[in-house]
Each structure stands twice: as C-alpha cells, then as structure tokens.
Design a protein around this nucleic acid. Sequence first.
DNA 1: ATGAAAGCGCTAACAG
DNA 2: CTGTTAGCGCTTTCAT
Lengths: 331, 331
Amino acid sequence: MPMANIQQVAKQAGVSAATVSRVLNGQNSVSQKTRIKVEEAISLLRYEPSMLGRNLRNSESRIILILIPTISNPFYLEIIKGIENTALDHQYNILLCETDSNPDKENIYFDLVRKRMADGIISMDPAVNVETLKQLAEKYAIIQCSEYGGGIGIPYVTINNEMASYQAVRHLIHMGHEKIALMNSDEKFLYARERRAGYERALTEYGIPVRKEYIHYTQHLGFEYGQQAMKKILTLEERPTAVFAVSDLLAIGALKEINASGLSVPGDLAVIGFDKIDFSNMTNPTLTTIAQPMYKMGIAAAQMLIDKIQGKPIDSIIFDHELIIRESTSG
Amino acid sequence: MPMANIQQVAKQAGVSAATVSRVLNGQNSVSQKTRIKVEEAISLLRYEPSMLGRNLRNSESRIILILIPTISNPFYLEIIKGIENTALDHQYNILLCETDSNPDKENIYFDLVRKRMADGIISMDPAVNVETLKQLAEKYAIIQCSEYGGGIGIPYVTINNEMASYQAVRHLIHMGHEKIALMNSDEKFLYARERRAGYERALTEYGIPVRKEYIHYTQHLGFEYGQQAMKKILTLEERPTAVFAVSDLLAIGALKEINASGLSVPGDLAVIGFDKIDFSNMTNPTLTTIAQPMYKMGIAAAQMLIDKIQGKPIDSIIFDHELIIRESTSG
DNA sequence: ATGAAAGCGCTAACAG
DNA sequence: CTGTTAGCGCTTTCAT
C-alpha cells in the first residue's frame, strides 16, 4: 500500500479530508478525539502529505533560488549557509544555481521563477543582466546580495565597498608603503568602481599620486588570474611594494607568484585580499584581508526575501566590514 | 493581467486546453495552423506554464536532492557541478542540502523526498544513517556518491580507496621514506578503513613495520584538524619524515603547522593529500595528492539517479584515480 | 467541530 | 487532429 493520500487517511479515520488537512496544519478547531483518530490513521498508513498537491493549491513552491556566478569561489559559501539556515527556519528550501555568468544559463534559472518553481530569487551574480532582473522584479520577489546594480530599485544587502577599500589602502600607507598596486575586477561591476574609488581616495588623501600602471584589471576573481596579474606587476620598472587585490583568491594567486619569483611576503611586497575566505588563513604567510559578515549577510538576504514574498515592506541593508591584519602585511 | 493559465490561452487561441498542452509539450499531433494560433496566444498573454500544476499532474518534482556533510569542503564542488550540469540536461534541478552530519537535519531533507518534493537523492555524506538510507531506498531512488556504506544494496560511484592509498604510500617509500605517518578519518567510515588498509599494505610489502604511534585519527577533514594532528605528530620521539593525509584540507593544515614549527616541506617532511581540490595547487609548496575524477563522478551519479528514477536498471561504478606528484614530496 | 464541494493548473485517456 | 472529461492531492470557503 504505497503512497497513501489524504482521502485514504480520511476514510481510515472516519472523517473528511478537510479534517485531516486541519490536523496536518495544526488548526485548533479540531476536537481532541478526532485529532487522535486522524493521527492514528496517519501513522497506520504511513501517510506523508504531498508537497505537490499542497504547493499547487497554495500557489507556492516554498523554494528560494540562489544565483551565483560560480560555486568555486568560497566567498559565497558562508552566505549560502546563512541563507539556507534562515530559509529552513521558515520552511523554505534553496535551489543553488550557478550561472557561470552566462546569460543563457541565467535565463534557464529565471524561468524557474516564471514557472512558479521558485518563489523568489537572491542574486549574487555581479554579471547578472540588470534589465532582465529589473523586469522580473516587477512580478517576483528579488533581492540582490553582496552585489547590486545600483539605483535599479531592487532591495539589496551589501557592504560599503569604497570605505573598505579605502581602509585597506590606508593600512598599507601606514605601514610605510607608497608604491601600492591595485588588482581590480572589470569596472563594469559597481563594486569594482567603488573599490577603485576607495583606493584613490586613500592615496590622494596622503598626497600619493595615482599611477595608471599600478592599476591592473583581471577578467575573473580566480587564483590563476591573480598569478597572471602579479606576473605583469612584477615586470614593472618601479616595482610596487604592496598589492591590494579585490578578492582573496586573487591575492593568493599573487602570493604564489611572488614566492615563485623568489621574492618574499611581506618583506619585498605586502599583500591584502578581500573577503576573508577560510583559505586566507591557511596560506603561508596568512593573508591580511577585509572581512565581510558573510553569514549575517546571508541571513539578512533570506529574511528580506521571505518578507518580500509575504508582501511585507523591506529595506536594503549595508553591513559593517572589518580589516583583518595578518602576516602578509605585517610579517 | 498577471499569470495567465492554460485555460485562458486556450480560450484566446480558440482551442481546448488539451491542445495547448500538446503544443507546450511538442507533440506533433497538432496541425501547423493551430500550433501557430496557440503560440500567438501564448506570447500575447505572456503565458508561462506552471510547474506546480504540471508536477502534481505528473507526480514528480523534477528535483534531485544532494546530501553533503558540509559545503565548506571544496572536494564536493566539482562533483556538484557534474551533477548539476547533467541534471540540467535532463530538465532536473538540484536541491543542495548540507547535513552537518547531523541526523536531525538529515531527516528534514529525507522528508523532502517522502513528501514528493524531490524525486531522488544523491548522498555524499559518509556519516549518513545507513539504516534510514536503506529503508528509504526501498521506495525512492537513491545513489551514493564517493562514499558508500558497503553491501547495503544501494548503487554507488566511488574510487578504489585502498589502491589509491597504497600508491600514495608507495610513492613516499620510493622517495626514500620509511617513517611515514598516516592522518586518517574515524574508521567508522568505510573509506577510512580502506585507506588504512592500503597504507599498511604498502608498508608491509616493503618490509616496513606498521607503527601505531604513526597513525592519527581526526574528527573531521578540515584544516584545523590537520594542524592539530600535525602538532601531535611533531612531538613524536622518532619524528616521521613523511605524512599521508586522507584529505587535502588535512594536508594543508599539516603543511601550515610544519612551516609554523620552523621545519620545511619536503625537506624535513614530505606531505601527501587526497582529492586534488583547487587549493592543493595554490599552497607553497604545492601539494602532492590523489586526484579523483570528481566532475565525472558527479555526471555518473546524476545519470544513474535519473535512470533509476525512470525505472531503468543501473550498475555501480568505480572510477580511476591518479597520483599527482607535486612539490610537497619532490622538492 | 466537521463535512461537502470547488478548484489550484496541468495532462492523458478516450472519443470522435 | 482536436475536444471532453476526469483527476493528480491538497486547502478553503461555506454550510451545518
């Protein structure tokens, strides 16, 4: 007798399906006596209510979609944990979607919400198509997390990128550095523009000229890209004495490349990363970096999304960051 | 006019809902003329078919559940990618579930398949409750990936752990090592027992005695546990000249600890890891390790599960591994 | 406190 | 080739 349904339970208990449903949903308009009858029938038949029927009836999927560019960047991991735990608390589940920053793949996932397979989206893909997202946000619940298009009216949670970057560079200056390179993402991303602004503000404030040849752009935030960029930086005529990379993975690539070329960190070059991923503490030397409260950001994003799904008003949040000073700048 | 349904499209096109459904599902029993009418109605009304209705009707969720102990171990990342891409090809989506090796959380996720929210499970949690899993497997599609209970009749994909371990240790012996430590997981896990067996076989084959004090167990596979275990190993009276750790994260922790104590790798101690996670190539020195074909394993697991869901017969698979020799054993 | 009835949106069997 | 009908499993009025 596989897969009993609510009708069979009702019959077994000698009540109507409606009553079984009431018991299932913990409504207190059921007498103790019938409740017990129903519960017995449920366990007798090993009944498990079908989410399929319930979801159709309620026009909801209780699924939240998370959009990330790649699962390979550990930066997203803690955020995802925060989202997942919060979602679970509210009986939501998460569908983790890797876009590879590919619009086609992205669109497959957007379809999931259009097709009611997901109740909302938390987007963490900086490369997301802002136009599509804006359009989608008119009909569906959408939150941007850690990366936002800016001024497109979609609620977001993020940190103050300009300030974080400013503080990182100021720290380097305080350590006596003047020749400071920036390893940045493509400036089509808002956060990349903000972080460069912070970099320039710090330099300017201390009367250090901004030198174009010290600013390098990488296509992605991965390890290899950090190596590559560092290789170029090391060929500069006036070699910098410090590098600020906008992601830990980039910074770790830089570290590796510096070591490979026989130089030492922080003796010859100081290095700062960004994100405080787990691995930033496993390198040798350990990496100075900007910590984002990733777990908290995940919680907030999930809470906002759930509120939004339920029609509540929500506000964007800007979280505090923190400069974590470790061996790569103070060896 | 938000959220048109199939009835409204039918009305707009002047046909029945059944015909619209046929067009939607690409059945060729529809005349060119009506097909066009229907397609026009669809785009006019911006109709998006609801998976909720379809799923109920078809008694399927088209969702695959992936069970992992923690998202923090990069080992799972590539496998997940393989699963996801394969799933996508077959119009399945994946629900990523982190159990923290916690039976309660595990049970929440098992409920998803009981409640028809998921069509099947790929379990990668070594700590999974084998009894529950076995029971579940009687009614639902379940595959074990990279970790299997052994002899419980659930199809699996894995590698030959004993052989991989044997080869790693043999490599160390060939490099001239005799005092070789093993950093292993709790032997309640099958793979831990297999890997110890391989370790012992290699030693024995070369006439090297197996020394109890060289075998250390860690509670988890994380970085910190590797550091801790290494700390103990370094206090041994007769310090080993090589360490074989059953995970890269463990090995990286060992690396860090060795460096911290002023010793060098591989000069004073050689180190081998297991898994070939991305990071194993980012450390200094880079890490010798056993490569598992993780992406392929993911693809296979997903394909097996989908076949199983569709009632096809399936066989377990044992994949080939490979010893990747890098700096941590060969200076 | 409980039941009858309707319907969420879709697909498949059957009839024509 | 197309429409009618029924029903997947559940929840929610509306009665009583």
